[in-house]
Design a protein around this nucleic acid. Structure first.
Length: 278
DNA sequence: TCATCACACTGTGGCACGAC
DNA sequence: GTCGTGCCACAGTGTGATGA
């Protein structure tokens, strides 16, 4: 009888740790296993039941999210030696164009900056400018330190890789001025009153608060979109995908292509300019 | 205001596999 | 043999809720 016991879940957690999985992955996998256990309700774990579970998930989540859950469950099945119970992943159609409703324009970005300035939120103003001016991820903000700004470059260590980000002189000047005003002599520039690095959830919430004043749709205001804007702007000027990949810290050009993909409307404009349909 | 959590979703890279 | 592509696993992000 293939019953999932609490012992199995705890041993699986240890197994993930020993396999050097990140904390986030371990938490996600254990959660997926516990949800499956709730679904099974003391019934035996069989392929038929897993197929039923996949059907249930399909009604609740997007295909990619279902696949994420399935990959967690597959790891658990491998751990239990129940490979025969694995079910197939869902097919996910790759989108041909980017979603225009989520594309932040340069004008909208500037309005967000002005809104932050008008509110007197200099930290948020500089934070958005730093992400959009360097293309870093929100999770890489802690690498923007007083020391890095003084040297004009920041060493980013993320996903097991190192890369150097060049900080523009004007940005450095603004950041150093801000650090001086805030009496920050070393370490993270962007910090809470208690001195901790800003939490990404709070950054996102703060950005959302600017939407009404900046007259920007809230659905396109989040930190990662500033990275996308940086990538599109960089590519428009430089037209060098390989260089952009280096700057963004991508090891594959395929990943960078996602950032510079055009919207359906932009694609249509290109087709019209071609003038091949008369 | 800030920290933390849960959950859904997206970004990213390794690798297998097929085409040439 | 190499190159390109797609699949899948893992890591990171967005967002709402909650509480200190």
């Amino acid at each position: 009888m293939n019953m999932i016991r609490e012992n199995d879940i705890q041993a699986f957690e240890t197994y993930l740790y020993l396999n050097e999985k990140s904390r986030a992955t371990t938490v996600k996998y254990i959660r997926a296993v516990r949800r499956l256990t709730e679904f099974l309700q003391d019934e035996e774990l069989t392929k038929r039941r897993l197929l039923e579970y996949r059907e249930l998930l399909m009604g609740q989540m997007k295909a990619q999210t279902v696949n994420g859950v399935l990959s967690a469950l597959h790891a658990f099945l491998d751990f239990l030696g129940l490979q025969d119970c694995k079910v197939k992943f869902l097919k996910v159609q790759r989108q041909a164009f980017v979603d225009e409703s989520r594309e932040l324009s340069e004008a909208e970005y500037k309005r967000l900056l002005l809104a932050a300035e008008a509110k007197g939120n200099e930290r948020l103003y500089l934070l958005m400018m730093t992400i959009c001016g360097t293309g870093i991820r929100v999770g890489e903000l802690p690498y923007i330190t007083v020391e890095a700004v003084r040297s004009g470059r920041a060493e980013i260590r993320m996903k097991g890789k190192n890369r150097t980000i060049i900080l523009q002189k004007e940005l450095c000047r603004k950041l150093l001025q801000y650090a001086k005003e805030q009496s920050i002599e070393s370490g993270h520039i962007f910090r809470t009153r208690s001195g901790n690095p800003l939490d990404r959830s709070n950054i996102c919430h703060d950005m959302k608060k600017l939407c009404a004043e900046a007259k920007v749709d809230a659905s396109k205001v989040f930190p990662h979109n500033l990275r996308h804007l940086f990538a599109r702007t960089f590519y428009a000027v430089e037209k060098n995908l390989a260089h952009l990949a280096d700057v963004l810290g991508h090891s594959r050009i395929e990943t960078t292509r996602i950032y510079v993909a055009v919207s359906a409307a932009a694609h249509e404009r290109i087709l019209n300019r071609m003038g091949l349909v008369i």
